[in-house]
């Protein structure tokens, strides 16, 4: 098992280096000069320009810049944002909890609703319930989530005035971040109503971001559940006279969940991509909004560092899923 984890981790290093190289090269190809963006449209003197270029290291040969970049990454330095002058890693770490909080809530929402929905559809196969659940799931799977977000805002925020339109918490409340997770921090602050405010800000973004994973998990659970329900050991369990709840919930579900775990792991990429759109719609101060803004400002280091960090996280989670898969299903581990 340990060797498996080591091997799996070592395989990732070239991939990670390649991503660093590609983002580095690609960012150089972006039209528009970061200095022009920074200084605005006013002309600046050649001497000042050279000074700026030297300051940003843009006067070095490209290969040297790349080696310097790798050296910095190795020391945990992902560069400094051209527009805010804050270290990229620090900005990322400040904003990342907001994205994680949203993504975690969305994933919990998707798993808590998706797995039972899939199980119910599978056990009631061919009935009206099955068709309705699967119809809703396919609709969710086909949903343009940015539009879904606007629709929910229109219904719940504009017409019913139930939930706020944007942000993480009402402006009335202020407290210093402790964990970065607004739900926890608002509880720790002890201010009346802060937790409810944070919760109400989270509801719509959670639904929007969780919709596609929810649909995917429900569909996957149904199909693996159907496969497992046809197995001999399930028939044996039934023949032993176990209650249907025990047969489905314990015997069948445990094995049906193995492929579902992989799908949940694969959804992490979908979540990160969806977070960009969701954060954009709800002005959620997370990584997605940060990256979109960095593109608009041609902030090279932010875009580079952001993509690198996100890919790194996606890769790490995929390793974790592989390992978890090996724990759940020993055949995978020994098969290698």
């Amino acid at each position: 098992m340990f060797g498996f984890i080591i091997r799996r981790t070592l395989l990732v290093i070239p991939t990670f280096l390649a991503i660093a190289f590609l983002t580095f090269v690609a960012i150089r190809l972006v039209p528009g000069d970061p200095i022009e963006v920074r200084t605005g449209e006013r002309g600046i003197s050649a001497a000042r320009l050279a000074e700026f270029r030297h300051e940003l290291g843009l006067d070095q040969p490209v290969w040297k810049q790349f080696l310097d970049y790798l050296w910095q990454i190795g020391h945990g330095d992902l560069g400094t944002s051209i527009s805010t002058h804050a270290p990229v890693l620090q900005e990322f770490l400040t904003l990342f909890p907001a994205t994680i909080e949203l993504a975690l809530c969305a994933m919990i929402f998707a798993v808590v609703l998706g797995i039972p929905a899939g199980v119910i559809a599978a056990t009631r196969r061919g009935t009206f319930i099955d068709y309705s659940v699967m119809g809703v799931a396919l609709t969710g799977f086909s949903m343009p989530i940015f539009w879904w977000g606007l629709l929910l805002i229109l219904l719940f925020s504009v017409q019913l005035d139930l939930t706020p339109v944007s942000g993480r918490i009402d402006l009335l409340y202020y407290f210093d971040p402790v964990t970065g997770f607004m739900l926890i921090d608002s509880l720790l602050s002890g201010q009346d109503g802060a937790f409810l405010s944070a919760l109400s800000h989270l509801i719509l973004p959670t639904i929007v971001l969780g919709t596609i994973p929810l649909a995917t998990i429900a569909r996957m659970t149904r199909s693996t559940m159907l496969e497992v329900l046809g197995e001999d050991y399930v028939r044996t369990a039934r023949a032993k006279g176990l209650s249907p709840f025990r047969v489905v919930g314990i015997h069948a579900l445990r094995n049906a969940l193995i492929p579902v775990v992989t799908v949940i792991g694969l959804q992490v990429g979908t979540l990160m991509a969806g977070a960009v759109l969701t954060e954009y719609i709800f002005s959620w101060p997370g990584i997605g909004t940060w990256l979109i803004e960095s593109i608009q400002r041609r902030d090279y280091p932010v875009l580079q560092g952001g993509i690198l960090l996100i890919s790194g996280i996606v890769i790490l989670i995929n390793i974790l899923v592989d390992v978890l898969y090996g724990v759940l299903n020993p055949r995978i581990r020994h098969g290698r």
Binding site: I19, V276, L291
Partner: peptide
Amino acid sequence: MRAMDVILSVPSLLLAIVIVAIIG
């Protein structure tokens, strides 16, 4: 296959956004 791994490790929409940001 390594090149494909690299493409796969960046979330799809993010990759598309970065490519479009570069080529316009």
